Simulated assay, not measured.
Amino acid sequence: MTLPVPYLAARTLTVVKPIDTSGAKRIVNLGLNESWLGTAPGAIEAIRASAADVHRYSDPGCKVMRAAIGKQFRLDPARIVCGNGSEELLDAVGRVYARAGDEILFPAYSFLQFNIVAYRIGAKAVEVPLGANFAVDIDMLLAAVTPATRVVFLANPNNPTGVAVPMDEVARLARELPSHIVLVLDAAYAEYVDPAESEATFEIADRHPNVVVTRTFSKAYGLAAARAGWAYAHPEVATALNNVRGIGNVNGMAQAAATVAIAAQGFVKEIRERTAEGRDYLHGRLRALGFELSPSVANFAFARLPGAPAGWAQDTVARLAKQGFIFRSNEDYGLPDWLRITVADQADLDEMLQLLAIEVEAVTGEKLAAGG
């Protein structure tokens, strides 16, 4: 019996990581950067109300959702494209502007989806080395551009490192990048930084027609399961993206929830402030355990235990999962010694940190304080 032969060889690169939680009495997931503070006010009620029309197709143009986003950020709704999460829109950019043999460029240790977008279309993924402390070097990024470069992805703040690129450097990248290359500013974690900085990306897109800004409702707005995201782009780029996105790609309940959530900026401000407090707390506790940290400004810590033996991070993830705490090791990013841990309720963090302290003690031989 013969099987279908794919044009692209099978790969194991994926954002989905199976994990064994057998034996755990409860599960605290600190591995997906979900918000522990719940969903934006009114969003769940909007979902319930829209469920009455689930037998009807949703608006394929997301007109009401786009209008709400445009009103909130003073943007032209005609330049907004909605997606099944921002991941669909990243993929749409790749499909519209790159082909097999072209190059898709991004800083090393960026969101894994950038690599996957290139893989899906047979393009070459080009990862540009970083500076110290995972800092993106704009000069190196620009120097890596070749005649084959078609798309540049920049996640800001980045996942999994949590590191942000200063907005003046982002603006310089947009200014100096050849205008025929699409620059995607993936701002999935924008709500966790100064709103003035995150909204400056829209101004950059207004100045440069080749710039696309992507945003999501999955993180700060607490709509991870609804799968709603959006992009802001030049009218011609928006038209091109609309031509390749799925019909009815944002379901009616997600549209209703996103339309309500985007106006809840007071809630987002609270999320930003409480996440910063929780991140500072988590960073302090991890430092006390001897961890090295990236300068994350997102809703997670990125940490490494110096001197730990090879495989320690993966073994620790596996052991704590069976005790009910999930977080992520990063061997698929080429950073096997690093852990990504989502900011969460302090009581949950304290319980996890007590278990993590035991793992650290086993390596260092030093008794560590379990308290905060």
Rank of each mutant, 00 (worst) to 15 (best):
R304T: 04
A40P: 02
G266S: 12
D280Y: 05
A225G: 10
I69R: 00
R287A: 13
K322T: 05
A276H: 12
A288I: 03
A190G: 14
Y221H: 11
D345E: 15
A118R: 00
I247N: 09
A231I: 04
A51M: 09
I69L: 15
L305H: 05
D186N: 14
P336T: 09
A132F: 06
F291W: 10
G94D: 02
S58Q: 12
A187E: 03
I181F: 11
A196K: 14
L353A: 03
N330P: 00
A51G: 02
L8F: 15
W230G: 02
P195Q: 14
A205T: 06
D206K: 04
P129H: 15
W338Q: 01
A370L: 15
L185Q: 02
A220T: 06
I262R: 04
L37P: 08
T149A: 07
V211A: 05
P178F: 13
V193Q: 05
G371K: 07
N158E: 10
T39V: 12
G365D: 10
E197Q: 11
S50L: 06
V15E: 10
A288Q: 10
I69A: 06
T201K: 04
A238I: 05
E203V: 08
I47M: 15
P18H: 08
I262S: 03
V81D: 01
G266K: 07
L368T: 10
G131T: 10
P157H: 07
K367S: 11
L105N: 01
N242V: 05
D20R: 07
V64D: 10
P306F: 05
G83C: 07
P107L: 02
T201C: 12
A174K: 02
T259C: 06
A318I: 02
Y221L: 12
R11N: 08
I247W: 12
T275N: 11
V184R: 00
V260A: 13
D350Y: 11
N330C: 14
V93Q: 00
V96S: 01
T146C: 09
A370P: 00
A347M: 12
H55P: 00
G324M: 05
V317S: 04
E169Q: 15
A370I: 09
V64R: 14
G229K: 03
V93T: 03
E203P: 00
P309I: 06
T342Q: 12
I27P: 05
I262G: 01
L141A: 03
I116R: 05
A303R: 01
P6M: 08
H55L: 09
T201E: 08
A226T: 02
